[in-house]
Nucleic acid binder design. Structure first.
Lengths: 207, 207
DNA sequence: GGAATTAGATACACGAGTGTAGCTTAGGAT
DNA sequence: ATCCTAAGCTACACTCGTGTATCTAATTCC
């Protein structure tokens, strides 16, 4: 297959395979994943794959398990609105990454859905469970910027839900301005700040 | 294949095939759709399928195109909150139906995504674009129950987005109580009604 | 009742992916 | 320098899906 003088082994090879399966799923979808396709893309022999995994979905799950964890939003400055927007930006960028696509792909596939372990869910998928804006919201709720009772599971989901939906039905990522609108028009009102009837602009009123 | 005295033709046969492909996609996903699988499930010969469609995705798209349109929410009573909940209930039930699954499946599949026509989008997918709560919200906005400027595209999406997200990440449909929470804690606040700090209960304050 | 239509069945050559076996050889360890 | 592990390669038998061709018989139309 490859006559080159270098033959990859161990970590290096596995990393290449992980990258390959994630690219592959982005291109053909989970349902059309094959050992053959993964092998070709990673420039390795099918036998090598079978030595480690039993089928394409196992390869994918393993790849996701070892994927770099998503950067977490750090509520640094005293700027709720800004931090929320930043959190959504992180989420949007992650969803646009190959790993993000792969996760979305797996979650909507009937076959692979049943194979995902508890551990994987915690490690990889939990980010979708609201980690992004939730981290920020909890931080500011604890500091009394808004009543903590308002931070319900539903409210913690609003931002991520809107970003997800936008991606699904328009297939184009929301711009930074779109994210700001989501924060201003949906999240902030839900925690008792707003909405501003006069429209789009909304500097963070904070305390 | 089937020795029975009755041989289906025309409409009847096509309807059976449509039903079959939609069941099939629910079970195996778009990526694993095959003419063979569809044929077997519909108890018809593959030749019959090829006479009409060139590949499995075409069959699926045709099925969706001919699917019964989703029931639209009718904002009848003077009950914004109740109508919103009913709208979300309609949406949830539709998403749980085979057709709903099929649509979700197609929208997240990289291959079929490129084959969907403008027409199909308008006819079938538009419901996800906000038709459910949007219909209700527009109705009450026009009647002055809340300021119309607040009904932005983002706000029109909140309910559907939350329902979608809940389904994707927990894989269990939201209960009626969950839907009520979404309305109370996310939609109503966004249009200037609430949130009620004391918590869950929220009779429609209306005008 | 006869003709036209079209579903059903069967067969076939083909390609793609599978899972395994066996061999060769590069890379790393000692 | 040698040994051992593991990657690369080839081959094979097998299954599944494809697309087409051909024949048959059920249904419908008149």
């Amino acid at each position: 297959m490859n006559n080159s003088r270098t033959r990859r082994r161990g970590e290096e090879l596995i990393a290449a395979i992980h990258a390959a399966v994630i690219e592959e799923v982005m291109e053909v979808g989970v349902g059309r994943l094959t050992m053959d396709g993964i092998g070709k893309r990673a420039a390795t022999a099918r036998t090598t794959l079978y030595r480690r995994w039993s089928d394409p979905i196992e390869v994918l799950l393993d790849a996701l398990y070892h994927a770099h964890p998503v950067e977490e939003p750090s509520p640094g400055a005293d700027d709720l609105r800004g931090d929320l927007i930043r959190a959504l930006r992180l989420m949007r960028d992650w969803m646009l990454s190959p790993a993000g696509h792969a996760v979305a792909s797996i979650l909507t596939d009937p076959v692979s859905a049943s194979k995902i372990s508890e551990e994987l869910v915690d490690r990889v998928f939990a980010v979708r469970g609201g980690t992004f804006t939730n981290t920020v919201l909890r931080h500011y709720a604890e500091r009394g910027h808004f009543p903590a009772e308002l931070l319900t599971p539903v409210v913690a989901d609003i931002g991520e839900a809107l970003v997800t939906k936008r991606l699904i039905d328009t297939r184009t990522p929301p711009s930074d301005a779109d994210l700001a609108d989501m924060v201003d028009q949906a999240i902030l009102p839900a925690i008792g700040l707003g909405p501003d009837v006069r429209g789009r602009r909304r500097p963070d009123p904070e305390a």
